[in-house]
Design a binder for these strands. Sequence first.
RNA 1: GGCGCCGUCGCCAAGUGGUAAGGCAGAGGUCUGCAAAACCUCCACCCCCGGUUCAAAUCCGGGCGGCGCCUCCA
Length: 470
Amino acid sequence: MRLYNTLTRTEEAFTPGPGNTVRIYTCGLTVYARGHIGNFRSFVCADVLRRTLRHLLGYHVKQVVNFTDVDDRTIAGAEQAGLPLRPYTDQFIAAFHEDARALGLEAVEETPRATDEANLKAMADLVAALDQKGLTYRSDGSVYFRIAALPGYGRLARLDIEGMKAGARVDSDTYEKENARDFVLWKAAKPGEPAWDVVEPPGRPGWHLECSAMALRLLGEPPIDIHTGGVDLIFPHHENEIAQSEGATGKPFSRFWMHVEHLLVDDQKMSKSLGNTYTISDVVAKGYRPSGVRYLLLSAHYRKQLNFTWAGLSQAEQSLQRLADCLSRAERVIGEGAHPEIAARVEEAREAFSAAMQDDLNTAGALGAMFELVRALNSAIDAGQFGRGDLPVVRSAFEGFDRVLGILSLRRAEDDEPPVPVADIDRLIEARHAARRRRDFAEADKIRDDLSARGILLEDSAGATRWKRK
RNA sequence: GGCGCCGUCGCCAAGUGGUAAGGCAGAGGUCUGCAAAACCUCCACCCCCGGUUCAAAUCCGGGCGGCGCCUCCA
């Protein structure tokens, strides 16, 4: 497939590593709050990358998604909540898993957290290696990375180090550093804050250190194949990960860097500091569905900013319903036989879908291919040119699409938990039938309206009445 | 100030040199007790101005507008 690489700022042909395995590191959440749907945009896109590699291309994937469970915000949050760091961050990790399930993210192979003992040990080893290469210095109890000692620093972000000195904003603790751009590997322990003595002097990890250490520990020999994250991580986070990893190992850190553009709200970045965030539970509380969010996130290319609106989410749910309806309609066809044109049309859609996904994960194009097939299938059903013999090939195609996009199965799972008990729905449909038989349409319409108000839509057809969730 | 991305129908969104996919919404029609769903029909010359080319939404130059990064950030 073709994949855009931030390192080269071009689309490149992607090939897997040895054993047809793709090793991916995805920068995860800092667990001081519940992740918002902007955060989840990058996870959903990484999920689609993963699914494409596995289910469309047949590669093996080993993916690490980390939790940053120690930093200024988690420490401050824990203190405010009167909890130790672990239990405090545990609750947001649990919330992440809940939201990830709601959004249909495939389980990844590893979800390490920074304060796991093995990871702290790996960080200490990394610092030691950097010490040995002369890439560190200590100042006021902290360990810093000396970027002047590493040629090539700034390559990912395309920084002009010389040109940046004038007028650049500087950290508040710059005076402790040799160079304003140097970054902290290991932070000095402060009274009352968590500290570990794996590094001398004792303290806690700097933000960037954990990702390098965990990636190298869990994914093995660099370079890893793909590193993913939001565009806001390009600098300084990913630049510094590269500096640490390549400084320590002398080898390239990652072959590909994939960066997901921001989700916007009112044309501004959705971020906790701006206070314009929505979480999955906010979305559900407003009566929308996680499957709609997933669809919405996939309806635009991952390298383009996407402006979140409630109207947009409604449109996404409508669109997704059209896809779901087509499949359930096909499954209800009772006519016998199979039609070669159907198989041919399905094959055409599969090819278009696959080509779009392999073209730098063009999910919008892939959805377009699905909708074109939907229209063709609906027309064939209307014309009586679709039989039960056509169903297997159609079902298999939709399953193939959905293994990659993960939207239909998600919606179906939601449908299986309707807001009104199924027994009640069935009873009301039966009552409405009786009303219709005696041509009491007022009563029939009342039942339908009542159910509609409770989130259940009724559709009459020749034989029977079907219900579905709104 | 430096770097980068983007501007396609009312809304969302593909397409990046060969004459504008798709979805939502809307209009008319078929079907229906009425709806819903579905189908059919209709609905854009791509921010502006120059240039290159037989040919540009697509390439180049200049504007205008929006966003992001340069500080914590998916």
